[in-house]
Simulated assay, not measured.
Amino acid sequence: MNMLEALGMNFALLVIIMIVLWLISIRIRDVSFIDAFWAYGMAIMASASFVQTDNPGTLAYTIWALTALWGIRLGTHLFLRWRKEGVDPRYKKIMGRAMEKQGMSFARAALLKAWAMQIPLLFIVCLPAQLGILLAGADGLSLVSIIGTVIALVGIGFETIGDMQLKAFKANPASKGKVLDSGLWKYTRHPNYFGDFCAWWGIWLVAAPMGWPVWLAAIGPLFLSFTLMKWSGAPLLEKSLKQNRPDYADYIERTSGFFPMPPRNAANK
């Protein structure tokens, strides 16, 4: 099977899974678990690519393992959070607007405002992993791939620690209404998003020795970076936090918005 056929099989699999999940979301009237599938879906696309690869070598195994580790860890974290907290207010607002102002049924809103738009975005963001695995064959790791592996592992570790610190903070009743500004959150307001950034640029770098198809697939981590820093990631979250936490404005003044840096003090403002 050639590369385009393999990618086509991956895309068809993604569409089928999305349809099934859409039907589930209609039944439970909640699309919030889509965030968990965003991560799981990346692992599934990498795995689908891997099983279509003849005689995979160390490079293919490494790309698959990094993507699976990132996807399963984050997907499980988000799924368990959804099971505990229920409907995500962001999606409740999106669905409510579509149903009330645009006259959509829940099923149509869920399809058009959530599941359908996620299919091409997930597929594109995951292209470096898919192409890297499909093109790697029996190749081993180059120096560039080793550097990428280190960056990806740092990102996965950074994100995991950040999520653990936030979970512990939320579990403490004394934290209600306060801002987490210790641990990794002392150096960046979004350690989890920075971890995603490193993980996917690292995976792209691991696969980069496979040539121009992977180089063009940089559109995946580029889009993810834009999403995290400028679109639905940090900006949307911070808009809500500034409204609900009085101390958040001061936290913004002293803490880096994305890339980890030493906190600013009053003298440095």
Rank of each mutant, 00 (worst) to 15 (best):
N268M: 14
G162H: 05
G233Y: 05
A110E: 07
W70T: 07
K167L: 15
G162R: 00
S25N: 12
T149D: 11
M45R: 05
T255C: 11
F79E: 15
F258C: 11
I133F: 04
K239G: 15
M164S: 09
P263F: 15
A109H: 02
L111D: 09
G103R: 00
I19H: 06
G75H: 02
L135M: 11
T62A: 00
L222A: 06
R189S: 01
I161K: 03
Q165M: 01
K186G: 12
P209Y: 13
D196R: 04
S145R: 12
A98I: 10
A107G: 01
I124P: 03
V20N: 04
A138K: 15
P213C: 00
L216N: 04
Y40M: 10
P263S: 04
M3Q: 13
A168V: 02
R90G: 09
W215T: 07
N2V: 15
W115L: 03
G137K: 08
S175L: 01
K230H: 13
L7T: 05
S105A: 07
D139C: 01
S256F: 00
S47A: 13
E100P: 02
K230N: 13
E100W: 07
T227C: 10
A46K: 00
G75T: 02
P89H: 12
L134Q: 09
A109Q: 00
E5P: 12
G103A: 13
A116D: 02
W82V: 07
D30L: 05
M42L: 13
G137P: 06
A267D: 12
E159S: 08
I203Y: 14
R90A: 09
F223W: 12
A110I: 04
L111E: 12
K242C: 08
A107F: 06
I28N: 02
W201H: 07
V15I: 14
V179C: 07
Y193L: 15
R245F: 10
L166T: 14
Y187W: 10
W185N: 00
L13G: 15
L216M: 08
V214R: 02
G57V: 09
L236T: 15
I44V: 15
V15T: 03
A168W: 05
G96M: 06
W215A: 15
A109G: 02
L69T: 12
L236Y: 05
G75W: 03
I72S: 01
M117Q: 12
T58F: 10
A6L: 06
L112T: 09
N244G: 07
Y193P: 11
G148Q: 14
